[in-house]
Design a protein around this nucleic acid. Structure first.
Length: 581
RNA sequence: GCCAAAAUAGCUCAGGGGUAGAGCGGCUCACUCGUAAUGAGCAGGUCAAGGGUUCAAUUCCCUUUUUUGGCUCCA
């Protein structure tokens, strides 16, 4: 079946399941108010206002009732009615009445009924519930959701379900969920001892353990190296600044609720930085600049703190303190096109080094509320678009989706199991240069306004680390692995040789540990596997005598009798090429 | 911030109005072993914090904190 056709079928099935679930819920709670119930990715949901809270046991009853409804071979019947009739029909359903008001005058009002359940609905649906007999479905969770997604509206009870053409597909989907759970960076972070968060010390603040720090160090080293190669300079800026700076930058006007509260000192308020830009601007403003000096490309692994809403925090992916791999470019109008293209290329090569091959771009254009002249916006958007097209990236345009201060490109990568994550962002800023009155002296002797570009390639190190953990499922390639090789002696007699080998490999530049615990060899192998170490080196009499190692690769493949120097060379090459095992 | 659920040993979890239990992990001892768990013993808990009900609270109730799943937000 063609993908589009299959998608349509699934969507019909899911939408129909939503109606059947609503009927089941109405059977249980005749006074329930029903809101909306669409098909979504992997399933469906329906929103209700119920006389009491739902508990997980209710899902079992709803499921049974749904099965009973399906078994009745009911027909999904579509009828078109007048507004009057619809109003009468839904007179006790406030949300349906509100939806009715939203239907355009020239549009027909259609209803779908299945058994006793009638819903205001555009459709389409399956013909009869007979078609749903083989459907594999499962109610997944109960959640709160605002009516029409607005924070000021009442909170409804949403029931999520998943539904597939048949039970086998459902099983595959549930297996996929189990795989996602196994890759969860919060779980792997604990299992592999990479990082932690502490209630005692504050939510959303990340502690990098030695093994996590090793990985971060590799990422940072690589990042710096590549930046110097690409013509960037590193800068360092403070973590706090006076309120007057944040007033001038506009953050206190537009972003105060996202900032940690002020610290008062010497009759000034100081704020911890939520962004690095004003500080980079301080350096720019430190002297007059000629067009001959531009472009400036200033990068900083800048740690910022933002007061993210409590409910938004999530492991490493959404935190309150994080380090952006930030840079600001100050460029002349003539340089803009080339610089944007270079930033994009740089970003792509960086992401590809981590094994992200599938990358999509999202171009956001001018919103209604915006600062900066139209010509600047148009020129900047064109520069962004041209860069994306030159690189041949697939992209979507988000009309009006830019920030008020400028247009942007976001890059989203697909991870090893096909999930999309936003990492890189390249943003123009027409606001800061105005507010801080940034200028350069052009060749005609006139002071002109430079273009300012913010960009982050990895986003934040915390978030990037979280994505990487899930992408690799904790099995980091040798260049990132905190411990690359584990030396396991077959018995205590070979402990001295194991230590010797450890020292030799370490000296050769490998991250290596010898396991000298009093576990048996088998247990040591098991432990090393649990740690997802790329290379396990088994050594005993044979190896000690011949200066060889028996290599057991992560995953179980074995190579016995490898010359020690050949093994070292093999690992160093993998590391240099940043290849997975 | 909103709706809901959860918080018990380092980890994963069981239990339950009469002051706690397993497995893994840790420590000690014995075993000295060739490709995914050697055995025995010991230690380890203010049952998230504060308040209330009760003769008695880790258990029931309230508040707070944190986490989880959603919603909203993400200049």
């Amino acid at each position: 079946m063609a993908t589009a056709e299959r998608g349509e079928l699934l969507s019909k099935i899911r939408h129909s399941m939503a109606h059947i679930m609503a009927e089941a819920v109405l059977q249980m709670f005749p006074s329930a108010q029903i809101a909306i119930g669409p098909a979504i990715e992997n399933g469906f949901y329906y929103d209700f206002e119920l006389p009491r809270q739902l508990v997980n046991d209710d899902l079992a009853e709803i499921t049974e009732r749904m099965q009973a409804i399906i078994a009745q071979d009911l027909v999904f019947e579509r009828t078109v009615v007048s507004r009057e009739e619809a109003r009468k029909l839904f007179s006790d359903q406030v949300y349906k009445l509100e939806l009715l008001e939203g239907i355009e005058e020239d549009e027909e009002v259609s209803l779908y009924s299945v058994g006793a359940f009638i819903d205001l609905c555009r459709g389409p649906h399956v013909e009869t519930t007979r078609e749903l007999r083989n459907v594999g479905f499962q109610l997944m969770s109960i959640a709160g959701a605002y009516w029409r997604g607005k924070e000021t509206n009442p909170m409804l009870t949403r029931i999520y379900g998943t539904a597939w053409e048949n039970r086998k597909e459902l099983r595959l989907y549930l297996e996929r969920l189990a795989d996602i759970e196994k890759r969860d960076h919060r779980r792997l972070g604990k299992e592999l001892d990479l990082f932690s968060l502490h209630e005692e010390a504050g939510p959303g603040l990340v502690y990098w353990h030695p093994k996590g720090a090793r990985i971060r160090q590799q990422i940072e080293d690589f990042w710096r190296e590549e930046h110097y190669k690409s013509g960037y300079e590193m800068i360092y800026t403070p973590h706090v600044g006076r309120s007057s700076l944040w007033e001038k930058s506009g953050h206190l006007g537009f972003y105060e609720e996202g900032m940690y509260p002020p610290m008062e000192m010497d009759k000034s308020d100081y704020y911890i930085k939520p962004m690095n830009c004003p500080f980079h601007i301080m350096i720019y403003k430190n002297s007059l600049h000629s067009y001959r000096e531009l472009p400036f490309r200033w990068a900083e692994l800048g740690t910022v703190y933002r007061y993210e809403k409590a409910g938004a925090l999530h492991g490493l992916l959404r935190v309150r303190g994080f380090t952006q791999d930030d840079a600001h470019l100050f460029v002349t109008p003539e340089q803009m096109n080339d610089e944007i293209l270079e930033v994009l290329r740089f970003s792509l090569s960086m992401l590809r080094a981590f094994g992200f091959e599938e990358i999509n771009a999202y171009l956001s254009t001018k919103p209604e509320q915006a600062v900066g002249e139209d010509e600047r916006w148009d020129a900047a958007i064109e520069a962004l678009r041209k860069a994306i097209e030159t690189e041949g990236l697939p992209y979507e345009v988000d009309e009006g989706g830019g920030a008020f201060y400028g247009p942007k490109i976001d890059l989203k990568i697909k991870d090893a199991i096909g999930r999309e994550w936003q990492l890189s962002t390249v943003q123009f800023d027409f606001n800061m240069p105005e507010r801080f009155d940034l200028t350069f002296v052009d060749r005609d002797g006139q002071e002109k306004r430079p273009y300012m570009i913010h960009r982050a390639l990895l986003g934040s190190l915390e978030r990037f680390f979280g994505v990487l953990i899930e992408h690799y499922g904790g099995a980091f390639p040798p260049w990132l692995a905190p411990v690359q090789a584990k030396v396991i002696p077959v018995g205590e007699n070979f402990f001295p040789y194991a230590k010797e080998l450890e020292a030799r490999l370490r000296k050769a530049g490998l991250r290596v540990e010898a396991d000298l615990s009093d576990d048996r060899m088998n247990a040591k192998i098991r432990n090393a596997n649990k740690e997802k170490i790329p290379y396990i080196l088994i050594i005993g009499e044979r190896e000690a005598e011949s200066d060889q190692v028996s290599v057991r690769y992560r995953g179980g493949k074995q190579a016995n009798g490898v010359a020690t120097d050949a093994f070292i060379a093999e690992v160093l090459e993998k590391v240099a090429k940043k290849e997975q095992l």
